[in-house]
Simulated assay, not measured.
Amino acid sequence: MTNNVGMLDRMIRFMLAGVLLYLGTSVYSGSALGIGLDVIGAIAALTGLFGFCALYSLLRINTRKADQTPQA
């Protein structure tokens, strides 16, 4: 598993995950929409944490610059 998510992309994913998890757990809690937002938020947070996105891999997208050291 190679890192294919760059630093800016990771920061955006973490911010998006925070918003989605907030909406899913407080605003829409207990509903199907809330559960869906929580799942999407958790996926965004995990892909940002590990630096790997399976969808990027399938589409052959790489936002990580060559000089960025892999962090995981």
Rank of each mutant, 00 (worst) to 15 (best):
L59I: 02
Y28Q: 05
L33Y: 08
F50Q: 14
T2R: 09
V5K: 09
R10E: 01
D38G: 13
N3Y: 07
A17P: 00
L59H: 04
N62P: 07
Y28R: 01
G34K: 04
S26E: 03
L46T: 14
P70M: 08
T69K: 12
R60E: 03
L21C: 11
N62E: 11
M7K: 13
V19Q: 06
A54G: 02
M7H: 09
L55P: 00
R64H: 09
L20G: 05
V19S: 09
A42D: 04
V19P: 03
S29H: 07
G51R: 11
L46P: 00
S57A: 15
T63H: 02
D67E: 13
T69N: 04
Y56S: 10
F52L: 01
I12A: 10
F52A: 05
A54Q: 09
I40P: 00
G34C: 06
A44P: 00
A44S: 07
L49H: 08
T25A: 12
F50H: 12
A66M: 12
R10F: 05
R64V: 07
K65A: 15
S31A: 03
A17L: 06
R64Y: 06
A32E: 06
V5A: 08
L23N: 00
V39D: 02
Y56M: 06
I61F: 10
Y28H: 07
S57W: 13
N62R: 15
V5T: 09
S57F: 14
P70L: 04
I35T: 12
M11K: 11
D38Q: 13
F14A: 08
L20N: 02
A66P: 03
D38F: 11
R13I: 02
N62S: 15
